[in-house]
Amino acid sequence: MDSNISRPLLLQPGQRLARGVCRHLRSLDFATIEEFVPSPGLRVDVLALGPKGEIWVIECKSSRVDFLSDQKWHQYLPWCDRFFWAVDSAFPAEILPEDSGLILADDYDAAILRMGPQTPLAPARRKGMTQKIARHAAFRLHMLRDPGLSVSL
């Protein structure tokens, strides 16, 4: 048996937050994709597609330094209906912008403490994003079945 198969994944702090966020959003009937690229040069930690087609972006921050070094988060806003920060209970939440959503998360679950303001996407952008999300998810699933596949995400 390959020893890599039996070892648990070693997740970084932000990835552990993302896992808890994704679990919680699944309980709300959202489908999630981690590390999604809405546009060249941007990579969001979690993108969530809701049951009514709503698109949320969640950025996971594991420390003050992690948050302060993030200069791109404003560029994510045109790609979603709502934007959230996900942090753990030790994070100094008072440094986060109040005009964005807030999710408290751990490795296994999360709770939405503050909804981000709703800024609906234009219909053409929503359609393009929904198609991109579907294709991205299909390619990831295909890569699980065929690990040697070369797909550019």
Rank of each mutant, 00 (worst) to 15 (best):
G116T: 12
P13L: 04
I133N: 10
D107H: 14
G101T: 11
L144Q: 15
H24R: 14
R145T: 09
V37S: 03
L144M: 11
L113H: 14
H142S: 05
Q118D: 11
L47F: 08
Q71P: 05
L96N: 09
A93L: 08
A111S: 15
D66T: 12
G53W: 08
A105L: 14
S62G: 09
K52F: 03
A18M: 13
L153I: 09
R126L: 13
Y108K: 15
G148Q: 11
R114P: 01
R114M: 08
V57D: 10
I58H: 13
S89Y: 04
Y76G: 02
A18N: 09
L149H: 14
R7T: 05
R126E: 11
L25A: 00
E59A: 01
L68C: 11
A18I: 05
R16N: 03
Q12P: 05
K127I: 08
G116L: 13
L149C: 10
D146Q: 09
V65Q: 15
K127V: 12
E98N: 14
L121P: 03
G101D: 14
Q118L: 14
T119P: 05
T119E: 13
E98S: 11
S69C: 14
A137S: 13
L17R: 04
D2T: 09
T130F: 06
R43P: 01
V57C: 14
L28G: 08
I5C: 07
V87T: 06
S27A: 05
V44T: 13
V46H: 02
C60K: 00
I103E: 00
D2N: 15
D66A: 10
R64V: 09
C22Q: 05
T119Q: 15
P120E: 11
T130Y: 06
R23A: 09
I33G: 00
V151Y: 11
L77D: 06
I112R: 13
L153N: 07
R140P: 11
I103N: 00
P92M: 01
F30L: 03
G116F: 07
W73K: 03
